[in-house]
Amino acid sequence: MRMLRPVRLHQALSRTVHTITLPDPDGGAAVWAVETHTMEDHEARLYRDGQRIGAAEMPAGFTVPGGRIEVDAGLYGVTRVHLVTPDGRERRLAPAPGTLEHRRAVLTRDHPRLSRRIAVTAVVILLVNLVLAVPAGIEMVTSIPQVAERFGTFTSPVVLPGWLLGTLTVAGVVAAVERAVTWRYNRIVDAETIWTSL
């Protein structure tokens, strides 16, 4: 039986572990953990007191005492890891020490002002990228012959130098990861991350 290993620093961007302690029917308690390797595969692994007892392709669901743990992930990290009780209530599992989510939560707790500045910067970056992506997206769609015949073509008035385009792309990925690890989502702000996840 495989044992759950601690999350190392070099795994922070690719591996997550979330835990929850649940009472057992016999009166005891067990620590349940869900592990994902979002850059390696799309599988969630379930552990009980550190021992692996199951795995499933995401979106995954595992039956545990008191309900069901539901797990899913996207390109930028885990999007759902919740215990759902029979009456429909949901409780998010806690990020384990060493994970990017845990490190970000500690930063929020210890340096709330810096945390807010990082969050605002991420939103600004994603909105700038979204505004710049709209004309580029229209140009790409109108370059399809069938669309061009019906609606004509469109040339984006915004032409960015390669270095700036690369910088904005990297900044956008970092901003998307920031939004993912802090469990923030907005249909408008995070619209660009939907396209890059396809």
Rank of each mutant, 00 (worst) to 15 (best):
M3F: 11
R5L: 15
R5C: 03
P6Q: 02
P6V: 13
V7L: 01
R8K: 11
L9V: 07
A12P: 00
A12T: 06
L13S: 03
L13P: 00
S14M: 13
T16M: 06
I20H: 09
L22E: 12
L22M: 11
D24Y: 00
D26I: 06
G28F: 02
V31D: 09
W32K: 07
A33E: 12
V34P: 07
H37F: 05
H42V: 05
H42G: 09
H42W: 10
H42D: 09
A44K: 01
L46R: 02
G50V: 14
Q51E: 15
R52H: 13
I53K: 01
G54E: 08
A55K: 15
A56N: 05
M58P: 03
M58R: 14
F62Y: 09
F62V: 14
T63K: 08
T63G: 08
G66S: 09
R68L: 14
I69N: 05
G74V: 08
G77R: 05
V78G: 02
R80G: 04
V81C: 15
H82K: 07
V84M: 10
V84P: 09
V84D: 06
T85R: 09
P86E: 13
G88P: 03
R89K: 11
R92K: 10
R92A: 11
R92N: 01
A94G: 01
P95A: 05
A96Y: 03
A96I: 01
E101P: 03
H102E: 04
R104F: 12
V106C: 02
L107A: 04
L107T: 01
D110G: 01
H111V: 03
R117S: 11
A119S: 10
A119N: 02
V120I: 15
T121V: 07
T121F: 10
A122E: 10
V123W: 08
I125Y: 02
L126F: 11
V128F: 06
V131M: 13
L132S: 06
A133W: 11
A133P: 03
A133M: 11
A133T: 07
P135S: 04
P135M: 04
A136I: 00
G137M: 10
M140P: 00
V141N: 00
V141H: 00
T142M: 04
S143H: 15
I144K: 00
Q146K: 05
Q146T: 11
A148C: 05
R150N: 08
R150G: 04
R150T: 12
F151A: 14
F151N: 01
G152P: 05
T153E: 15
T153H: 10
F154K: 01
T155P: 02
T155D: 12
S156V: 07
V159M: 02
L160Q: 06
L160I: 09
L165I: 01
V170M: 09
V173C: 06
A175C: 09
A175E: 11
V177M: 03
E178R: 00
R179V: 11
T182I: 10
W183N: 13
R184M: 03
Y185L: 09
N186Y: 05
I188Y: 06
D190I: 01
D190R: 01
D190G: 02
A191L: 15
E192N: 13
E192C: 07
E192T: 13
T193E: 12
W195C: 04
W195I: 13
T196D: 04
L198P: 02
